Computed example of a mutant assay.
Amino acid sequence: MHDTTTLQQRIVQGLNEIDIPDSPENLYAPIQYMLQIGGKRIRPLLTLMAADLFSIDEIDKALPAALAVELFHNFSLMHDDIMDNAPLRRGQQTVHEKWNPNVAILSGDNLLVMAYAQLAKCPADKLAGLLGAFNTMATEVCEGQQLDMDFERRESVGIDDYLQMIRLKTSVLLGTALKMGAILGHADENDAQLLYDFGVNVGIAFQLQDDILDVYGDPAQFGKQRGGDILANKKTLLLLKTLEIADRDTITVLNHWFHDDSNPEKKVHEMTSIYDKLGIRKLAEATKQAYAEHSFRALERIRVHASRKAPLQTLAHALLTRTH
C-alpha cells in the first residue's frame, strides 16, 4: 500500500501538471490562484486511498478522478463564497473579492469543465459508473447549497432537515470521492457502496464536529472567531437541539439574542450559557458519535483485510477528533 504522504504528493504534482492557459488572464489567473492557496486535499486523497484499498496497481489510473474531485470542490467553493459574501478562503482573499463576482462565476464555471476533462481521462470501461456517481453528487451538492440558503430565511428548521442539508452540501462529496476510487480499484458494487456510506457518515460527523468547535473550540487552534455561527444566527445542530428541548422562558431569551446583534461578545456568552445549562454540547457529541459509529461499521463490512483499511480508519479518526 502507498502511504498518505506519497498520495498527497501525487495529487499536488497532478494539479501542477494541469495545463492552464495564461489568456484570458481574468479567466485563468483566478483558477491558478484558487488551486495554489491549497487546502488539505482530503477529498482527492480519499479517491486515491480508496483505489489503493482494493488494488495497489490502480493509483495512477485513479489520479484523474482524484483531480476531478478536487477541481469540482474548488468550483463549488468559488461559487459558495460569492453566495455567502465571504471575504476569506483558507486565510486568503476570496476570488470574488480579489477580482470581482463576475470573474469568480466564470472561473468557477471553467473549473467545473476542467473537472469533466479530467474524468474523460479515466479508463473507458469505468467511465459510465464514474460519471453516474459524479453527476449524482454534483446535483446533490447544489441541492444542499440551496437548502442552506433557504434555511437562512425559514423560521423553523428541523434537526432532520439540517442533517439532510449537511449530508447533501458536504458529505456526499466525501462519499463519492471514495466510491470513485473504489470503482477504479475494481471493487464490487456492494463494497463500493459500503465505502460510500463510510464517507457520507464521516462527512456528517465532520460537520457536526465543526458546529461544536465553533462554540467550544480554542480560537487560537480552530482559526476562526469563537461563536461565529452564533453571531451569524446559523441554524446549527446546537441551536436546533436547544430549540427542541428548551422551555418557553429560555426560548424567549434565545429569540431576543437571535435578533440582537448590538453586543456580539455578550451574545456569544449568553447563548453559550444556555447551551451549557441544557447540556447541548453532550447531546451534539452523542449525535456526532452515532454517525462516526455508522461510518466505521460500514468500513468494517468491506471485504478486504483489516490492515488495508487501517489508513482510512486513521484519517477518519483524525478528522473527527480534530481541534482545528
Rank of each mutant, 00 (worst) to 15 (best):
L71V: 02
L71H: 02
L71K: 01
F72I: 01
H73K: 07
H73Q: 13
H73T: 05
H73I: 07
H73P: 06
N74G: 09
N74K: 11
N74F: 11
F75L: 02
F75Q: 01
F75W: 09
S76E: 09
S76G: 13
L77W: 12
L77V: 13
L77I: 15
H79C: 09
H79T: 08
H79E: 08
D80R: 05
I82R: 10
I82C: 12
M83R: 09
M83T: 11
M83G: 10
D84V: 13
D84F: 14
D84E: 14
D84W: 14
N85C: 10
A86C: 08
A86N: 08
A86L: 08
P87E: 11
P87S: 13
L88D: 00
L88R: 05
L88H: 02
R89C: 13
G91Y: 12
G91A: 10
Q92F: 14
Q92S: 12
Q92V: 06
Q93Y: 02
Q93P: 00
Q93K: 04
T94Q: 03
V95Y: 14
V95S: 11
W99S: 04
W99M: 07
W99V: 07
N100W: 06
N100D: 15
N100R: 11
N100A: 02
N100F: 10
P101H: 10
P101W: 11
P101K: 12
P101G: 07
N102A: 08
N102D: 07
N102F: 10
V103W: 11
V103Y: 10
I105L: 15
L106K: 08
L106V: 12
L106N: 14
G108M: 06
D109A: 00
N110A: 04
N110C: 04
L111S: 03
L111M: 15
L111K: 02
L111T: 02
L112R: 02
L112T: 00
L112G: 00
L112I: 03
V113N: 00
V113I: 09
M114P: 05
A115M: 08
A115E: 03
A115H: 08
A115I: 09
Y116N: 00
A117D: 05
A117W: 01
L119R: 04
A120S: 14
K121R: 15
P123V: 08
P123L: 08
A124I: 14
A124D: 11
D125C: 11
D125F: 13
K126E: 04
K126Y: 11
K126M: 10
L127D: 00
L127H: 05
L127Y: 09
L127Q: 05
L127P: 00
A128E: 11
A128R: 12
A128T: 14
A128S: 13
G129C: 02
L130F: 06
L130G: 03
L130V: 15
L130Q: 03
L131Y: 14
L131N: 12
L131R: 09
G132I: 06
G132F: 12
G132E: 13
G132N: 15
G132K: 15
G132H: 14
A133E: 05
A133N: 07
A133F: 08
F134D: 00
N135S: 15
N135C: 13
M137R: 05
M137C: 10
M137W: 07
A138I: 05
A138Y: 05
E140S: 08
V141I: 15
C142A: 13
E143A: 05
E143I: 09
G144H: 06
Q145L: 04
Q146G: 00
L147S: 02
D148C: 07
D148P: 06
D150A: 01
D150N: 04
D150W: 01
F151C: 01
F151Y: 15
F151K: 01
